[in-house]
Simulated assay, not measured.
Amino acid sequence: MQHDRIDSILEQWQQESPQLDLSALAVTGRVMRIARLLEKHREAILADYGLAVWSFDMLATLRRQGPPYQLKPTDLYDLLMLSSGAMTNRIDRLEKEDLVARIRDPDDRRSVSVQLTPKGIELTDTVMSVLFERENRFLEQFTKPETQTFTKLLRQFLLGFDANGR
Rank of each mutant, 00 (worst) to 15 (best):
I9P: 00
E11D: 14
Q12D: 08
W13Q: 06
Q15D: 10
P18H: 01
D21W: 02
S23Y: 06
S23M: 04
M32E: 08
R33M: 08
L38V: 12
L38H: 00
H41L: 04
I45P: 05
A47H: 07
D48C: 03
L51F: 03
A52R: 11
V53Q: 00
F56M: 07
D57L: 09
M58Q: 07
L59D: 02
A60I: 06
A60T: 11
A60V: 05
G66N: 10
P67R: 15
P73I: 13
T74N: 06
Y77I: 10
L79W: 04
L80V: 14
L80S: 08
M81Y: 12
L82P: 03
S83W: 00
S84C: 07
G85R: 14
R90P: 01
L94K: 02
E97I: 01
D98P: 03
L99T: 02
L99G: 07
A101T: 13
I103D: 01
D105S: 06
D107L: 14
D107M: 09
D107T: 06
V112T: 15
I121P: 01
I121G: 02
E122T: 04
E122S: 13
V127I: 03
N136D: 13
R137M: 07
E140Y: 08
Q141Y: 00
F142Y: 13
P145I: 05
P145W: 03
T147C: 08
T149F: 07
T151H: 09
K152R: 15
K152L: 15
L153V: 04
L154N: 06
F157W: 12
F157M: 14
F157Y: 15
G160H: 06
F161K: 11
F161I: 07
D162L: 15
D162Y: 15
R166V: 15
R166S: 11
